[in-house]
Nucleic acid binder design. Structure first.
Lengths: 330, 330
DNA sequence: TTTAGCACTCATATATTGACAATGCTAACA
DNA sequence: TGTTAGCATTGTCAATATATGAGTGCTAAA
């Protein structure tokens, strides 16, 4: 589709614009490509016809269009070699053997967020697919209990239960024992069903105050299956010049506060996915890079959010590095 | 210090400015105070001499100075009667009996943040003063354990431990039993000491792989004593016109990302404390209203952050309302 | 003590200008 | 046929000018 020089030109413009955030002029390029500015202009106007470049106004230099970024990402981009310093920082986390997968990922992403000036998001499917491996109930006072659920993947969830009526300790114990027997091995998001159709009828038979107890436990357990979302470095990407007006920043901040938006990101196939501008359904100036992982049977998604004008090569390299280290036994 | 009319005038100016965010002109007031604009101007210039009012430029209307807000808060302000709708919203939370104190507070503050367009902060002293009431250790696989600590106030903390060397299940069990015996009743922030000076020597005697085990547990437990901070409605206050430029917003966002800043807020005496502008050491345009609570022996602080130009009467009323309901048995 | 009236000041909005940085196009060149 | 020099053209940016309106301070009179 593009010849060699055109490809080079696009690469130069995209990368220069990523670096400087200013429209790239023909003059600035002729040294690199060893030809006159006029020649560059001819090629530029071809790339503009193709829809890969844009001008901010009639006599301005060129800027990559959304399609231009897309082309760059799909055909030109190659992951940048990580520099020693960055690699070292990440490696110290890998080497910290006391971290489990979850912590490894969030710590790594914190650092990546700093290194790239992007906002990092960790979407843990922390519980959904996990299976219950133990249920524990600890009384706090007459009316309050704490229910703790531990899953086979090592996640812990807990919830306070309040039981208004007076219920005998024995009844509670019996209920917990029954629950324990019947729901171990059940996936967290299935627990609701199992409680309703299998546990409830049995409790009704054997336990006196079954209604009150059942309800308390039911609401507690159905609360567990939600996803966890963490975000670091919200401010980072907002420092970029494309977010240089108050309204834009406010808009982005509001979107960050809405966790629904983050859920929407999670949907696509494996590997690294890059959504540019309007593809994000978030903001036309924004790119979202996300990657699913599946290590030791634990799934999740990590994502980086920033301006379209982000260092794609570095971002991809960093994410791949994280994934690589995940495989190696984390 | 101020006569009746001057007090009224200050009240009108502060409240009008809070509502409109525009300098208040003498003309706008003469209807309310039944005198001509010239009279108002005379009084205004007296209040300006006193340092309670300011002009934004030589021919502008008046704006409350920091000192003006201070005077208003200290001498004029009276809590506003809550309107029925707001009261109802808060009451539904109070009535939700399945909520424990922590949840009651965070849910209430979420709503208050919405109602006031301020940012709400909940600083839970969630664990510091709590005493350990149970320690539970659950094995996940050969090298990973989960340590769960439950406190007498019903807080649950957990942490993954990784133990690289092969340690016998028996050793682990012995260690946990010892820990359980020795640290129950200890305050969370004291656990470190107790482990070091009381538990360690004993483990060393009875358990084979004591070094490895002790280290794993020690790092886990000393992690528990940190405070929890939650923030809701970051965006709310940023919608106000005083934060109408990108740099200002960025500055505030950065400060919000830094949890240290939030810690600093927590220091003063009981009741409701209002810090205005430079008193906040946060930003000159910002007011922080904070309130300590102590219910059922659980302490904490809640705070609202927003522009100096906030509805003090409403804010104070809301916080008092929350505290009132806390006393009544939540 | 209050007020009407007037001169004065400053913010805000809009238009005008010149310098500059690019471009597109044309015609000449290799 | 591809490349390049030259020039008119176009738009940005910053500085400057101009008009308008909202508000004040001050003074003199009620």
């Amino acid at each position: 589709m593009l010849n060699d020089r055109q490809t080079k030109l696009l690469k130069i413009i995209v990368e220069d614009y990523i670096k400087t955030a200013r429209p790239v002029s023909s003059k600035a390029i002729c040294d690199i490509l060893n030809c006159s500015s006029a020649t560059i202009r001819n090629e530029m106007s071809y790339l503009e016809e193709t829809g890969l470049l844009e001008k901010t106004h009639i006599s301005s230099g060129r800027v990559p269009s959304e399609k231009g970024y897309r082309y760059y990402v799909d055909h030109i981009l190659e992951p940048r070699e990580l520099n020693g310093e960055d690699m070292l920082k990440l490696q110290t986390i890998v080497n910290n053997s006391s971290l489990m997968l979850d912590d490894y990922i969030s710590k790594s992403m914190e650092i990546v967020s700093e290194m790239t000036n992007l906002t990092a998001i960790v979407l843990g499917k922390s519980s959904k697919d996990n299976c219950v491996s133990k249920v524990e109930v600890v009384p706090i006072n007459e009316h309050n209990l704490i229910a703790i659920v531990i899953t086979d993947k090592g996640h812990v969830e807990h919830k306070n239960l309040t039981i208004k009526e007076n219920v005998s300790i024995n009844d509670i114990k019996q209920t917990v024992d029954l629950i324990n027997k019947m729901i171990i091995g059940t996936q967290l998001n299935e627990v609701g069903k199992v409680l309703e159709y299998e546990v409830k009828p049995i409790i009704a038979k054997y336990v006196k105050q079954h209604e009150v107890l059942y309800n308390a436990f039911y609401t507690a357990f159905t609360d567990f299956a939600k996803e966890s979302v963490t975000m670091t470095g919200r401010k980072n990407m907002l420092m970029q010049p494309e977010f240089n007006n108050a309204d834009k920043i406010r808009d982005i901040i509001s979107k960050f506060e809405d966790k629904e938006m983050v859920d929407k990101i999670e949907e696509n196939d494996n590997g690294i996915n890059i959504y540019i501008g309007s593809e994000t359904e978030f903001d036309d100036d924004v790119t979202i890079v996300k990657m699913k992982y599946d290590a030791q049977g634990e799934e999740g998604t990590i994502a980086l959010v920033g301006p379209k004008r982000m260092e794609y090569d570095k971002v991809v390299a960093l994410l791949e590095y994280i994934k690589e280290n995940m495989k190696e036994g984390k």
